[in-house]
Design a binder for these strands. Structure first.
Length: 232
DNA sequence: CCGAAAATAT
DNA sequence: GATATTTTCG
């Protein structure tokens, strides 16, 4: 009808172009990790995210891009698997400026080579505190509450690796203490033991919570297929 | 409904 | 021109 009326000023019933803020993306990744890339299909993701801003198409589109980025990353880690010729000289050629690292989650925790003390601190400050912080946030947001734990893939690994290095910590601390002759080695040991114990408890808590969440996810998934409201 | 590809918008 | 997001298609 309207002559040369471009779609410009037409904001009738059209939703404005969605932009995936970091917050939205984080939520998205949370849910995807929660469901597992396996069952992460648009409808379920949408239901779990439960965000009025989103439409199934939005999610589908973002999922497509997300999978592509995952694909790129994994393939750059495992160049090939052909049991034939061609010496495996393939090097990773994904520069830090690669869009993959800038746009999509998949952030690596740069704390794998820190020294014992720092590692412990990192564990507490950078991971666990983060976790608590996130978990204590607005408990009305299902996706956030549920996703937080799994949201931080580095969490489990970080905890385990640090837990594993606790032994080293003990020996390290002991030796350095001995060399400085009698500096309350007893207290030190105690402290170490306490920390160790604390860490163990935290790990247990995390395991428990994860189990709870996994269970919850299963329940919701069972409840989903029928006809959960999915229209926006 | 899903995922991939083509079309647009930024 | 490159990306991000939307729309079309199978």
């Amino acid at each position: 009808m309207m002559n040369k009326n471009k779609d410009h000023e037409k904001k009738k019933n059209k939703k404005p172009r969605l932009t995936w803020s970091e917050e939205l993306h984080r939520k998205f990744v949370n849910v995807v990790n929660l469901l597992g890339i396996e069952n992460a299909v648009p409808r379920k993701i949408l239901a779990f995210m439960n965000d009025e801003r989103l439409t199934k198409e939005n999610v589908a589109s973002h999922l497509q891009k997300y999978k592509l980025s995952l694909k790129r990353i994994s393939s750059s880690c495992v160049p090939n698997k052909n049991g034939s010729i061609i010496g495996c000289g393939q090097f990773q050629n994904v520069s830090p400026s690669d869009p993959v690292y800038q746009n999509d989650a998949v952030q690596q925790k740069p704390m794998s080579t820190l020294h014992s003390d720092e590692r412990l601190d990192s564990l507490v400050d950078d991971v666990l505190l983060q976790w608590w912080e996130d978990n204590n946030q607005d408990p009305t947001d299902l996706s956030d509450v549920i996703g937080t734990l799994l949201n931080t893939p580095p969490l489990k690994d970080a905890v385990n690796s640090n837990l594993g290095s606790t032994q080293d910590l003990v020996t390290l601390a002991s030796s350095s203490c001995v060399s400085h002759e009698s500096i309350e080695i007893g207290e030190l040991r105690q402290e170490i033991a306490a920390t160790r114990n604390e860490t163990r408890q935290l790990r247990e808590t995390i395991h428990a919570l994860k189990a709870q969440q996994d269970m919850l996810v299963q329940v919701v998934l069972q409840l989903l297929p029928p006809n959960v409201l999915t229209q926006q």
